[in-house]
Design a protein around this nucleic acid. Structure first.
Length: 151
DNA sequence: GCCAACGTTGGC
DNA sequence: GCCAACGTTGGC
């Protein structure tokens, strides 16, 4: 079992949208490191923190879990999609995704600035590493537990 | 809206 | 393979 954090812009797709959808293909990831996590390291049942980015305030909004094996992101072949990738070969798709299932909303959003105040206890957490822009990242189990205690 | 940090592209 | 130019992310 692995633990993860996945960012989403709530204006585009929020934890409430995930709750309504139940399960959602996590499409549009166009970063190789993030793709590799989904393709190579995620397994059914892995737990995921859903993080709201590019909003006020940014922070952890809820929990989900990995609900599929990796499979090709269909938006890469959809010329009407903003995630269309003309360079991706259908025989060997460049972008893979997993489905994410809603688990629950947190009792309150845990804001980024509060998380940063616990930097000593969360040393190594990619989210608060300087300059990190990864949209999908692993979370150590102790960090996971610590973050949930802030809820 | 700004801009630092990072990733990607493409000429050479 | 280098690296400048450009695009994106995402906090502030």
């Amino acid at each position: 079992m692995h633990y993860w954090l996945m960012k989403t812009e709530p204006e585009a797709f929020s934890i409430d949208d995930l709750e309504r959808a139940g399960t959602e293909p996590w499409d549009g990831i166009r970063n190789y490191q993030a793709r590799n996590f989904m393709r190579d390291d995620m397994a059914l049942g892995d737990q995921v923190m859903i993080y709201h980015s590019n909003c006020k305030p940014p922070g952890i909004a809820g929990l989900g879990e990995v609900a599929s094996q990796p499979y090709p992101d269909p938006t890469q072949f959809d010329s009407d999609s903003k995630y269309f990738d003309a360079g991706s070969d259908p025989e060997e798709p460049r972008w893979q995704l997993v489905d994410i299932k809603f688990v629950r909303k947190l009792k309150r959003l845990i804001p980024l600035d509060e998380i940063k105040q616990h930097a000593d206890s969360l040393d190594g957490l990619v989210l608060i590493r300087k300059g990190s822009r990864l949209s999908i990242m692993p979370v150590d189990k102790p960090h996971w537990n610590y973050l949930l205690k802030l809820e």
